[in-house]
Amino acid sequence: MVIYHFDFGSQREFIPVYLQAMKNTLLLSVVSVVLATIVGIIAGLARTSKRPFIAWPVAVYIEVIRGTPLLLQIMIFYFGIGPIINLPAWTAAILSLTLFAGAYVAEIVRAGIQSINRGQTEAALSLGLSHVQTMRFVILPQALRRILPPLAGQFISLIKDSSLVSVLAISELVYTARKINTRTLKSLEGYVIVGAIYFVMTFSLSRLAGYLERRSSPSD
């Protein structure tokens, strides 16, 4: 049989289950992206440090995370570290997504900071501000404007990447779709539906990000 015959008739009763899964996916992504932003700002700042004992470990963290598959990180976190410190699946999921996205946010933050003209730092220092004050009052406020659009992009990626924690039996969208497919003896319907849900979420977010970007850029 080549042509697949779609039949969405039996999906109706699962609408609340899909909605719950969507909430879980959003919750995972929102919590992880907020934590990842904090991790990323700290790591991004550390990455620009002139002190090797600060910059180096952070560089290693960023490179290792970016150089290995997220799926692997999730499994190592849950099956490797999880049992030792008794990590529930949700916590392991959020932590691994946070560490993963944090590495990317760190690079976004670093690029944002380095995009600010050196003259800004020099002017601030020459006024007698400390390095920390210079960062906080002069560089970061300017860098944040440039960081926001790529950060929104990172959030969108994270919504999609969060599907990988389905391997931890967390009822996010993909895991839920797989379960409903099994229950309804279908192989595609559930996936098509959650695909549509992902797309609606990411598309509206990217439109929102585009709008915010357009609104913030003229005053640069």
Binding site: G119, E122, A123, S126, L127, G128, V138
Partner: peptide, 14 residues
């Protein structure tokens, strides 16, 4: 540095 003001060619205002 608080005792030494500096003015740059490119102004470098914030």
């Amino acid at each position: 540095r608080q005792r030494l003001g500096m003015v740059f060619q490119q102004f470098n205002l914030f």
